[in-house]
């Protein structure tokens, strides 16, 4: 299925969880994640399953600004 990740359309497996997505994309498992502009808590990463066309934002803000 197709989802948008950081403004790019990407094909990912059906029913993929956020934890699996981060692994699939080879990203850090503790990255901050927003789904459809709503922030997801780390404890939800194993259970939240992505749906077709969802908008995902993945950031790794560790300081500065």
């Amino acid at each position: 299925m197709e989802v948008t990740i950081n403004n790019k359309k990407i094909e990912v497996p059906e029913d993929i969880t956020i934890s699996e997505l981060l692994k699939y994309l080879n990203l850090r498992k503790k990255s901050a994640v927003w789904i459809n502009e709503k922030q997801l808590l780390l404890k939800e990463y194993d259970t939240y399953k992505l749906s077709e066309n969802e908008n995902v934002k993945i950031l790794n803000i560790i300081g500065g600004g």
């Binding site: 404890k43 803000i61 560790i62 300081g63």
Partner: peptide
């Protein structure tokens, strides 16, 4: 810039 807590406490939560 010495210790940045928002990532642990708020962003990745």
């Amino acid at each position: 810039m010495r210790a940045y807590a928002p990532n642990d406490e708020v962003f990745e939560a």
